[in-house]
């Protein structure tokens, strides 16, 4: 198969998503007349859906009269935006200098092994998203992990199991 044909096939195989746009429309309605409304609209959509579903990008583009490409540029520029669904529980492990010297890489590797997902990936059941981050600002507690807003200092490999077990119990909603 030619290079072009392979590229084309890849695109054709991507599944089309069905997304309920009611909430996105309501968010756009709220900011429609505000100058510089693209950021609050995207933030609102991310809050509502947990990420920015691609069909909402087309909707925002049409209703705010902004090019879809520009929206994509904004979404990929800011790390706060996500184009794929995120887990209910976001596990963040610090790999900043202090944590690094305290063995953060081993914590990371253990999470990888136990969760079966890598950096910036989300488990299939949408329960966990794992991220390596550079410094969470609590170097005294190194090595450090966070799950959503809960902090876990002085992390050990053993604690990884406990954390995963704990959050596997918690509800998905």
């Amino acid at each position: 198969m030619s290079h072009a044909a392979v590229q084309k096939k890849k695109i054709e195989e991507a599944p089309a998503e069905e997304v309920d746009l009611t909430a996105a429309n309501a968010i756009i309605d709220k900011y429609l007349t505000l100058p510089g409304n693209l950021m609050p609209v995207l933030q609102g959509i991310q809050d509502e859906y947990g990420f920015v579903p691609p069909p909402t990008v087309a909707l925002v583009a049409e209703r705010l009269n902004v090019y879809p490409s520009q929206i994509y540029g904004v979404l990929t520029f800011y790390s706060q935006f996500h184009l794929k669904p995120r887990g209910r529980y976001i596990i963040r492990v610090c790999v900043g200098t202090a944590c690094h010297v305290q063995g953060a890489e081993r914590i990371v590797e253990t999470f990888f092994g136990k969760l079966g997902i890598g950096h910036a990936e989300t488990s299939e059941d949408l329960r966990f998203t794992f991220e390596k981050v550079a410094c969470l600002g609590a170097c005294g507690m190194a090595p450090l992990a966070m799950v959503n807003d809960d902090t876990f200092g002085k992390m050990t490999v053993q604690k990884v199991d406990e954390i995963i077990a704990e959050y596997n119990q918690r509800p998905m909603k």
Binding site: Q7, K8, I11, P54, V57, Y67, P68, S69, Q70, I71, Y72, G73, T76, F77, L83
Partner: peptide, 23 residues
């Protein structure tokens, strides 16, 4: 006034691309 292109990503990963980096 078509707006096919944009800078996508940031820093060293930045490149000129289209919406969703598609064709």
């Amino acid at each position: 006034s078509f707006g096919a292109y944009t800078f996508i990503n940031r820093g060293i990963d930045a490149k000129m691309g289209t919406a969703f980096d598609g064709p």
